[in-house]
Write a protein that binds this DNA or RNA. Structure first.
Lengths: 336, 336
DNA sequence: ATGAAAGCGCTAACAT
DNA sequence: ATGTTAGCGCTTTCAT
């Protein structure tokens, strides 16, 4: 059991070549005879050699790591983004390393710093609006950085996301087109989520442009959840009358709102049209239709990882690419 | 910009001490005068030194990494387990490194192998029933391993979880106690999820013991989701009559079932009692009550990480601890 | 095509 | 309490 771990020297000895030849053979690093390659790879397999990425990284001054910083792991949206990243990275030899900030701005800089200390091949970070300290870290990182989810602003290096303000505005116009006029807004955790704030501002501006003021606003400093949506909706409707539409900061809260309406016997969407954001699977399965903006979560992750991969391949320290993905409004999402 | 990265030698020079003293001072490794510690830490801060964990790890032959292997990242259950792990690890100096297998048994061994190559301080792996190859890797890992979620079986080293078979049986008895007799079972993805299979077997055994056969069974080879639950329930109810209760392999599928019933106008829970597993927040917010078994997801992650930490602290290669956490049945979960 | 020497940035072990 | 000497396991560079 245990015993000392096998090293490259063991493989070299078993194959009857030098460490260098073994190293090259295992990496397909050219300039090795077919013969040697086979000998070495067979020897490695036979003795059960597993390379040591730590030593590899220290020696080569580069890692096969891609750092990913997201605000939440339990939010299905980021889980889907991560799935996209993982898919793009699979079979590339690169590994994602995930850091979670829990929407804590101080922890964000700390997390980024800690990722950078591993000198990853690239970094994927959520959002365009890091506080000063974090932004400085990204600027001086000296490696490819992709900021994701949002394209409203100036990225440090590259970005992949959607136009958040426009998305909010588009939904505002769409709701007006449906004839809704007594429109409320309910949001959670806006301090930590600048994307939601942008949508809200875009939404409000679109209504204002049509001369329709928001009929009411309820923003809670708590984290977004279905339960929060349910409670906030109950509170909101007890304070405002004749509301015919509510725009929520995301789908979770909107579904909570729907649960309140179902429980209270309020006809959805006839009396009140509920509107979320993201187009989660949950929403598509709802027994009653609500509106939402469908976002390409998986694709955002996939493309971001592709950009890092491409930069790593050409040994560049920059991505320098800006990708704005389209969104789509669905007025009656749900299974009906 | 960029330029060469600062190393320990730079700190030592700036502080006017040797590399060794600087190293010890930065790590609080004893045997350094208060004076030197301060000088070094100030120098490090001033020049903006960030340590290189790769070099540290290679030299010390140990890392601050804890490997975590889960079947799915987008499943909220594992996201909550990860949150527990992250919380236990925060401020410990250890970092989780996450690997996702997507319920693919081949990928599991590969993922474990890849985690092990980094020589983490410990490994947290989902489930007790790895296929042979993966199990061998764990046995020969030579580091603390904690298998999570399940305690029905023999762990390689330590485990933290719940008694899955018992949990299924307990729910079976509870439903009988409610007077339900025409009970169906609907499950998804049971090949990849041995825990769900154990619950099912326990459940069926409990019914059999009372002389009540399952009124029907529908198991789909697709991944678990709300949409799947909705479709499978529709299918199931079209095939079986007089069903008064359905046990689902988890909460997601049960919620899908509820959505079908709400849409079809079937009174829940009066006519049919729906039963999930986990006690997700989603379930607690539902407008109509369903039954579920509440599981300590967060705590499982937290305790597993604590075990790794404790083993690392005493420089042990084993955890050798088995923790079985209690579950609780709630017959009318939801907000009503 | 192969190998020898040097070193990546740090810490363990052993001085002093 | 501080410093010196050797590596950790690999790759880079430079010979051959």
């Amino acid at each position: 059991m245990a015993g000392k771990r096998l090293t490259l020297a063991d493989v070299a000895r078993a194959a009857g070549v030098s460490k260098m030849t073994a190293s090259r053979a295992l990496r397909d690093a050219g300039d090795v005879s077919r013969e040697s390659v086979e000998k070495v790879q067979r020897a490695a397999r036979e003795i059960g050699y597993i390379g040591n990425p730590i030593a590899m990284s220290l020696s080569s001054q580069r890692t096969n790591l891609v750092g990913v910083v997201v605000p939440s792991a339990s939010n299905i949206v980021f889980a889907e983004v991560l799935a996209g990243i993982t898919e793009a990275l699979s079979d590339s030899g690169f590994q994602p390393v995930i850091g979670v900030t829990d929407y804590d701005l101080d922890r964000e800089a700390e997390t980024i710093r800690s990722m950078l200390s591993w000198r990853p091949a690239g970094l994927i970070v959520t959002g365009l609006d890091q506080p000063e300290a974090a932004r400085r870290l990204l600027e001086h990182a000296g490696l490819p950085v992709v900021q994701i989810m949002d394209t409203d602003g100036t990225p440090t290096d590259g970005c992949v996301g959607i136009a958040q303000t426009d998305a909010g505005a588009a939904m505002g116009r769409a709701l007006l087109e449906q004839g809704r006029r007594r429109i409320g807004y309910i949001g959670c955790d806006l301090a930590g989520d600048t994307r939601a704030t942008k949508r809200w501002l875009g939404f409000e501006a679109a209504l204002a442009e049509a001369g329709v003021p928001l009929a009411g606003t309820l923003v809670a400093d708590r984290s977004s959840s279905i339960a929060a949506g349910r409670q906030l909706t109950a509170e909101f409707l007890s304070q405002h009358t004749n509301i015919d539409c509510i725009y929520y900061s995301n789908d979770d809260i909107a579904v909570g709102g729907l649960f309140h309406c179902l429980h209270a016997g309020i006809p959805v969407p006839e009396e009140i049209l509920l509107t979320g954001f993201n187009g989660l699977d949950l929403v598509e399965a709802l027994p009653v239709p609500i509106a939402t903006t469908i976002t390409p979560r998986h694709e955002i992750g996939f493309k971001a990882a592709e950009l890092i991969l491409a930069a790593a391949e050409r040994r560049s320290t920059r991505v320098d690419t800006r990708i704005e993905l389209p969104t789509r409004i669905e007025m009656a999402a749900g299974f009906h």
